[in-house]
Amino acid sequence: MGAAAVLWTGGTAHANGPADNTTPPPASGNADSNGDLSAAVSRIKVTQVSGPTGGKTGSISSTDVNWEPPPCWYEPVYTPEQLKAFSEGNNPLGYVSPHEMWGGQKLWTDHYRDSKVAYNYEDNALVSRGGYDNYNIGKKGYFWRGVARDPSDPDSFGCERVMFWQNAGEIPDVPNAPTPKTLAEYAYDKVKVPGTEIELKPATKSTVNAPTWVWLDKGTFREIKVRAELPNTGLWAETTAKPVALHLNPGTEYAQAIPASGNCEINEDGSIGTPYQRGDSDRTPPCGIRYLKATDGTPYRLSASVTWQITWQGANGTGGDLPDGTFETTQDMNVQEIQSINR
């Protein structure tokens, strides 16, 4: 074979022209994740600015089932000097879009050094892109490339433009160019919240018709702020998750949540409900459950989910709201058929 191969996850093609140097986009693809310059992975820097650290944590789920973080966007990847060093290295193999790899020097030097046209499928159409003279060395800027959050997502094929040049200090005027909101939504996916380990009284076994008190001490749940920055762009965003409510699901139809909605509001001091005190056995808790039927050897699965209100602010005075998120944990509840309370 006289020319190096263009490597697709769904096929192999060659480098002599539009008829034989491309293949249609594959149904899915797998991007490298080794983090080097040749891998189609994001360079967004994520930092937790505030909130609890350590202990058991998990990712929130959007309450809007139709909402997802952006499937793809573009990022600056190479300076001219970096691209020259990579392209003229030993058998360079790397991504020029989220789903297409070029292997061997010739493809890289043809397009980025010797000004030859490159071809790729964009929006299911074969598109040609003009080449560059000597990697644009001497100019200030970066070569930008598409990045996919999940390469197997069909929507991730919206950033297939072959890696292209953008002057320093400029954001490309292309579909799916990054914005502060892009980074805010990316950070949403990185928010880690603490597990919902609620306090119960009685702690080990509830009693039929007697209320089980549920509470969370103040400070257990605090705002969590995550910052996402895209290097060499001036773009940043901070996504804040604020706990606003605890929802209880008793795990059986033979129970009553307190309040009836199952939603226990978070108090101003960050606590939820009220801790049980000696002598409270005849009172109704502000947050709790009343089981109406004993378990028969198989415990009920009590679930507790915290709703997190999500907001963001970013570069250039931008900001807004994102869909609320939830995080749920479950625990076993045994219920006995006696008319006394374990104080």
Rank of each mutant, 00 (worst) to 15 (best):
3 A>G: 13
6 V>L: 02
8 W>G: 04
9 T>G: 01
9 T>H: 03
12 T>L: 07
13 A>I: 09
17 G>D: 08
17 G>V: 11
21 N>I: 00
22 T>E: 04
22 T>L: 12
23 T>V: 15
28 S>V: 03
36 D>I: 07
36 D>T: 12
37 L>W: 08
42 S>Y: 08
53 T>C: 03
55 G>T: 00
59 S>F: 06
60 I>W: 10
65 V>G: 04
70 P>I: 08
80 P>C: 12
80 P>Q: 13
81 E>H: 10
82 Q>W: 07
86 F>V: 07
89 G>R: 13
93 L>P: 01
95 Y>G: 02
95 Y>S: 09
101 M>T: 04
102 W>L: 07
104 G>D: 05
105 Q>F: 08
109 T>D: 04
110 D>K: 08
110 D>L: 06
114 D>V: 12
118 A>H: 03
122 E>R: 06
122 E>M: 14
127 V>H: 06
127 V>L: 01
129 R>S: 12
136 N>C: 12
143 F>M: 06
143 F>S: 07
144 W>H: 05
150 D>V: 05
151 P>S: 00
152 S>K: 05
153 D>V: 01
154 P>Q: 03
154 P>C: 05
161 R>T: 09
163 M>N: 02
164 F>I: 00
165 W>H: 00
167 N>I: 09
171 I>S: 00
171 I>K: 05
177 A>S: 14
179 T>L: 10
182 T>V: 11
182 T>E: 07
184 A>K: 04
189 D>L: 05
191 V>L: 14
194 P>A: 08
196 T>G: 00
197 E>Y: 08
200 L>D: 03
202 P>Y: 06
208 V>G: 10
209 N>H: 10
214 V>N: 01
216 L>E: 01
222 R>W: 03
225 K>P: 00
227 R>M: 06
232 N>K: 13
233 T>H: 04
240 T>D: 04
245 A>P: 05
250 P>E: 06
252 T>R: 11
257 A>V: 10
259 P>A: 09
260 A>K: 14
264 C>Q: 03
266 I>V: 15
269 D>I: 02
271 S>E: 01
271 S>Q: 01
278 R>D: 14
285 P>Q: 04
289 I>V: 15
289 I>Q: 05
290 R>G: 07
292 L>C: 11
296 D>E: 15
296 D>L: 15
303 S>L: 02
306 V>D: 01
308 W>I: 06
309 Q>Y: 15
310 I>H: 03
312 W>A: 00
313 Q>E: 15
317 G>P: 01
324 D>C: 11
324 D>R: 12
325 G>C: 08
335 V>I: 15
337 E>I: 12
340 S>Q: 13
340 S>C: 12
340 S>W: 12
342 N>G: 14
